Computed example of a mutant assay.
Amino acid sequence: MVRMATRRDDRTQESRRLLIDAATRLFAEHGYRRTSFVDIAELAGISRGSIPWHFGNKLGLLEAVVDAQLDAVVGGFGGMDASLDGVMAFVRRPGARLFITLLAEAVEDDSPIRLHYARLHAALREAVRRAVPPLPGIPGEAYAALLVGAVIGLHAQWRVAPEAVDLDEVRETIRALLPG
């Protein structure tokens, strides 16, 4: 027997979505370690006690944020626009800032987000391997790592000094370097 969704189920899902959206924004702006339950709850407009109820703890909330971003990024690569234009459009999205902010924390040996970020990079490399054929004689894994690294580096440079990095010009340069 299929159970019908209730108003409570709808409110629960909406609360969860609001908390993930607020955490995504705050993690992008302030980092994981400098964002508190209070900050997230205030931005979401939801009681801070809802965070452990939905996610167990702050790391559980981070996992939900990373999963949502993985779905958005990999879904974009695997579906609607795996083109260079699609990648460059993604770099420009305000929410993409999260990846650069988390990277700074993820490289620390004791970072609680290190493994989650490694999983994100692995998913990005896999999406690139499926979307972009490697050059002849170049191993697919190395090629995917190079392209993901180039986009991450480009994204970081643009976020730090947007006046110094012309994304349209860079896109055309990448287009000239890639086969096809």
Score class of each variant (00 low, 15 high):
residue 2 V to M: 10
residue 2 V to G: 06
residue 3 R to Y: 07
residue 4 M to G: 03
residue 5 A to H: 12
residue 8 R to G: 15
residue 10 D to L: 15
residue 11 R to Q: 15
residue 14 E to P: 05
residue 14 E to I: 01
residue 15 S to E: 14
residue 15 S to M: 09
residue 16 R to Q: 15
residue 16 R to I: 05
residue 18 L to I: 07
residue 18 L to M: 10
residue 22 A to R: 05
residue 23 A to E: 05
residue 24 T to D: 00
residue 25 R to M: 15
residue 28 A to V: 07
residue 29 E to A: 11
residue 30 H to T: 10
residue 32 Y to D: 03
residue 32 Y to S: 13
residue 33 R to T: 12
residue 35 T to W: 06
residue 38 V to Q: 13
residue 40 I to L: 09
residue 47 S to P: 00
residue 47 S to I: 01
residue 49 G to N: 14
residue 49 G to P: 06
residue 49 G to R: 06
residue 51 I to N: 01
residue 51 I to R: 08
residue 54 H to Q: 14
residue 54 H to L: 12
residue 56 G to S: 13
residue 56 G to N: 12
residue 57 N to I: 11
residue 58 K to L: 02
residue 59 L to I: 02
residue 59 L to H: 14
residue 59 L to F: 02
residue 60 G to W: 05
residue 61 L to E: 01
residue 61 L to M: 04
residue 62 L to R: 10
residue 63 E to R: 14
residue 64 A to M: 06
residue 64 A to T: 06
residue 65 V to C: 07
residue 65 V to Q: 01
residue 66 V to Y: 07
residue 66 V to M: 15
residue 70 L to V: 07
residue 70 L to N: 12
residue 71 D to S: 11
residue 71 D to E: 14
residue 76 G to K: 02
residue 77 F to W: 11
residue 82 A to N: 14
residue 83 S to W: 00
residue 85 D to Y: 03
residue 86 G to E: 14
residue 90 F to W: 10
residue 91 V to E: 08
residue 95 G to T: 11
residue 95 G to K: 11
residue 98 L to R: 09
residue 98 L to F: 08
residue 98 L to V: 07
residue 101 T to R: 12
residue 101 T to N: 03
residue 103 L to S: 11
residue 103 L to W: 05
residue 105 E to Q: 04
residue 106 A to V: 03
residue 107 V to T: 09
residue 111 S to V: 02
residue 114 R to I: 04
residue 115 L to Q: 14
residue 115 L to V: 02
residue 116 H to S: 15
residue 117 Y to I: 09
residue 117 Y to G: 04
residue 120 L to S: 11
residue 121 H to N: 15
residue 121 H to R: 15
residue 122 A to N: 08
residue 122 A to K: 14
residue 123 A to N: 09
residue 123 A to H: 12
residue 124 L to V: 08
residue 125 R to M: 04
residue 125 R to V: 01
residue 127 A to K: 08
residue 127 A to C: 13
residue 128 V to I: 12
residue 129 R to I: 15
residue 131 A to R: 00
residue 132 V to F: 06
residue 134 P to F: 00
residue 136 P to Q: 14
residue 136 P to T: 11
residue 138 I to L: 10
residue 139 P to D: 15
residue 140 G to V: 14
residue 140 G to E: 15
residue 143 Y to M: 03
residue 147 L to F: 00
residue 147 L to R: 02
residue 147 L to I: 08
residue 148 V to G: 05
residue 149 G to C: 01
residue 150 A to D: 08
residue 150 A to L: 08
residue 151 V to W: 04
residue 151 V to F: 02
residue 153 G to M: 09
residue 155 H to V: 01
residue 155 H to K: 03
residue 155 H to D: 08
residue 156 A to F: 06
residue 157 Q to C: 08
residue 159 R to W: 15
residue 166 D to P: 00
residue 166 D to T: 00
residue 167 L to H: 06
residue 168 D to Y: 00
residue 169 E to R: 02
residue 171 R to I: 04
residue 174 I to N: 06
residue 174 I to T: 02
residue 176 A to E: 11
residue 177 L to V: 06
residue 177 L to S: 07
residue 179 P to L: 09
residue 180 G to I: 07
residue 180 G to M: 09
